[in-house]
Design a protein around this nucleic acid. Structure first.
Lengths: 218, 218
DNA sequence: CCCTCCAGATACTGATTGGTATCCACATAC
DNA sequence: GTATGTGGATACCAATCAGTATCTGGAGGG
């Protein structure tokens, strides 16, 4: 296939492989629990490649942090937020996109990694500052495109604070749904969104069979 | 002073010291990052004491998990939930208690530990099951004492699902506020609660000076 | 076509860690 | 007061890991 890469291309490609491998391994073992050997092996490389591309484990962590922002899903979210759609549709699309990213099989990684990062950031001042720097543009963007429908109670709240509530709900529901998507169905994110926005509950947005107990014999 | 403890009393006391020390060290270093030597030292004991009281690190973790349920704050929350107070008051008390437990200086540990536990549980099936077992009685209790005010939209939702949303908000806001309590003021938990319950925003529940940017010269 | 140089492989180190083996002081039993 | 059993201290071990030093194959320049 398309071989014969220039030296620099090869390097960038390996760097990317390492970042993606690190994502997976971090999600699986936790950031502290992940060894660089394991990350390198998951990328089909060796630790030498890691230290050739990153100064330390700390830097790798921060770069993974960074890299994640450029992920398709994340981009779609911010784009949606900036789209200026009417609330009713925005809520629906948002909830759809969200639920998909949680449900989607191997996307378990997503929630695990998010929680892992937050947990790590809470205990490491440097990472904390980095994370907050990532979050603040999103926060400012919310200012320009307020989520709250015009007449609602929610619209009396500063857009940044609305955004904060949304983020909290996102993080919390991601974690809970990841723990047990049956007992804590991800669809509840959309439900909560509608309630906050002052939109009524429509039937179809409710999870059908979620009694909290698991009597699924399958 | 009151010395002369029986052998069993001494043992129980040391066990307790270890659990409390583990809480602190886990919150500070993370569960994986915490060494048993460090835990033991924080309790004023040695690793010998740890292995005399717990079979392994894994078991210590689970016991800390357990022990935490008996904590005063946690008890107050569940009591409040079962109090059957009218929504308006319940929301206020709940938010108060919550904000206090987040703000209160050394209670940073609380949020850090909660997130750490969830993160750990997401990656360890055994711990996951244990955590879910802790959560389910709370979930069932919600059934008996629904949080939603009578006429509200929220009351159309099964109590357990309401409870799930509350838990998600709790976890998410704890984490965010712990990261930066200025940018993500914990008072927003109460605000979100009022919005979900369909209660209007009263002025005093709003955080006064939270613009999202930090120009506090102090 | 050969020489140079560097990204990444290989090999190694010191420090840390969970866990174990052994030992000792003292509370309890007689 | 003496014997005894046990909770916890001390000492140790093998494994793991971040980081370093060294080496090498092959791309890029001539």
């Amino acid at each position: 296939m398309a071989q014969r890469l220039t030296r620099e291309q090869q390097r960038q490609q390996n760097r990317l492989k390492l970042l993606q491998a690190a994502e997976r391994v971090f999600a699986e073992r936790g950031i502290q629990g992940a060894s660089l050997d394991e990350v390198a092996a998951a990328a089909g490389l060796t630790k030498g490649a890691v230290y050739s591309n990153f100064a330390s484990k700390e830097e790798l962590i921060q770069q993974v942090f960074w890299y994640r922002q450029g992920t398709p899903d994340a981009a779609e979210f911010t784009k949606l937020q900036a789209s200026g759609l009417p609330a009713e549709q925005l809520v629906q699309r948002y909830a759809q996109l969200w639920a998909r990213s949680v449900r989607g099989g191997e996307r378990d990684d997503f929630a695990r990694l998010a929680v892992e990062f937050v947990s790590y950031a809470m205990r490491h001042p440097d990472a904390r500052d980095k994370l907050l720097d990532f979050l603040s543009p999103q926060q400012e963007q919310a200012e320009d495109h307020p989520f709250a429908p015009a007449g609602s109670e929610l619209s009396k709240l500063p857009a940044q604070q609305v955004n904060t509530i949304l983020m909290a709900l996102d993080l919390g529901m991601s974690a809970l749904s990841n723990l047990d998507s049956e007992r804590y169905p991800p669809e509840l994110y959309g439900v909560a969104l509608r309630l906050l926005a002052g939109l009524g509950l429509d039937e179809e947005s409710l999870p059908s069979d979620a009694t909290g107990s698991r009597n699924d014999p399958a």
